[in-house]
Design a protein around this nucleic acid. Sequence first.
DNA 1: CTGAAAGCGCTTACAG
DNA 2: CTGAAAGCGCTTACAG
Lengths: 343, 343
Amino acid sequence: MTMNAAGGRRRPPTIHDVAREAGVSRGTVSRVLNGGHYVSPAAQEAVNAAIRRTGYVVNRHARSLITGRSDSIGFLLTEPQEKLFEDPNFNVLLRCCTQALAAHDIPLLLMLAGTQDERRRITRYITAGHVDGVLLVSSHSADPVAEQLHEAGVPLVQCGKPMGRGTKVSYVAADDRDGARDMMRHLLSLGRRRIGMVNGPVDTPGGVDRLAGYKEVLTEAGLEIDERLIVSGDWGRASGEAGAERLLAQAPDLDAVFVASDLMAQGVLAALQRAGRRVPQDIAVGGFDDSPAALASSPELTTIRQPWDRISAEMVRVLLAQIGGEDPAAVILPTELVKREST
Amino acid sequence: MTMNAAGGRRRPPTIHDVAREAGVSRGTVSRVLNGGHYVSPAAQEAVNAAIRRTGYVVNRHARSLITGRSDSIGFLLTEPQEKLFEDPNFNVLLRCCTQALAAHDIPLLLMLAGTQDERRRITRYITAGHVDGVLLVSSHSADPVAEQLHEAGVPLVQCGKPMGRGTKVSYVAADDRDGARDMMRHLLSLGRRRIGMVNGPVDTPGGVDRLAGYKEVLTEAGLEIDERLIVSGDWGRASGEAGAERLLAQAPDLDAVFVASDLMAQGVLAALQRAGRRVPQDIAVGGFDDSPAALASSPELTTIRQPWDRISAEMVRVLLAQIGGEDPAAVILPTELVKREST
DNA sequence: CTGAAAGCGCTTACAG
DNA sequence: CTGAAAGCGCTTACAG
């Protein structure tokens, strides 16, 4: 029972009303609604006119009850809400996923579940069939939400490689390790030899793989791994600032820093400036992500570009395939070195 | 047809399976599901055990088909997506609304509709019954989405006073005019007499009412309204910076600025600093919102606090009442002057 | 307190 | 190409 604009009560028209109005059966109306196959042009016409006259809109609940589909996708962020606003990567990813879904005319529902309570509520909501599948974004290592949704049989694609037991959960990720290698080779090619690293949390795949790339290249170049050159933050700007300060204290002779996120790199730049070190003359700084933060920095950051547009498109593709019955899949996409002013 | 964790196909258990398992009728299972009224403790017990054993989860589509409810609320932002990330007010409002809904155990679905195409898609989605009601956020004057949803009979509450024809749409807003008056009286009480204003867009209610408050207090104080002292921006930081530059050029003798948003006030502070004017010694600056931007500024902003927690709680209250059949309502909440360092 | 039954609004084989 | 009919999984008066 809804109210129309005039405030009067009105029963929304059903397929039955349309059928009567068009002088056909309800089956025929339904066929028109679902693509117009096996319908004569005359009937087609009559039904469309009736739909217009009655202002008919399909009742989603009834349709979904039969098809088992809701024709919508959830974009679930299991992070404190602040993350969404602080980290420009989320902004980009969200926009790209919206666009990728728009190509299929599917609306994206953003779900924020930063607290335990919200995660419980949203898990129940999803499990009950409100969305056909979930694009899951979480930088945390072992996400219980992913586990629960997967157990419940909800089609699911993670952004970034999930850690832990190699479950059968789909994911799409950039090649973190190879990206780190590219940056390190770049820094070495500039003649830098005391290269520090401000890493992300080591309980995240990004933290693990970017560190691995860092070490690999140093070893290949015949350089020692000096643990005083390695610190880690939490991906956020402030932690990059703190990390750079620790590096300067532990290894004052460093001549380059590879920072595992652009946001942390902004903090690193601030700390270096305060310490009177010039970038890139004294210390070269390389970031990771090529997020909007890279261009907003001064000097502009040399960084490793994560192909968010392709990542999003692949996440949507894999998810829709899975909803269609296909098995999970993992997709790894190459990164790209973007040279700017900071190296 | 969903897949379980093992990958095998499995038909999700229905109320029928639970009834058989518990040795009762489906009606009894349904009664347990809906609050357990008129059910014996023994039956209650048996049903709950059967639910646990079968892993039953209610099928939302079937339930919604009957009740006509989806038990979820949409938070719709008809702004370019960037706004969400740039303006800290949205962050606060989103968090507060989430909390207000959580008190009713209702999940919030965030819907971003910045483009024409997205607005069309999401309007159809909402109209089809996916959500029971909409919390609408839009700083624009005449929002066609609001109109369409209202026409379709979707319960709707706007954040901020809608402009234009006084439709019967519910809204919750802070008392912009009174807030502006408080700030102006405060500036006058400090002895300032050449008070400029960086206003928001004049086609928004905020822009109209805050300007009205500004002029009112000046007139009451017997001061001239000098149009060279009034400029307007788009609520964003950059426009505040540009606005302050224009003010300094048009009225170099100004001794205070009332800025219609904290975000623009940040820009104003930057411009004043660049121009070598000290705040508050040379020029006092008052903001509006008391958003996180006010504390992030240097000096910290004196501003007018919008009571976002109450605004959110009222939006939710009015929306739920409307879903329950009540008529629309408008709620205006008082603001509060917060004195900090910039005045 | 409980079961049998009707019905929510749609889709989809099934006969024609 | 089209209609009559079954059925999706649930809730809710209605009798007991």
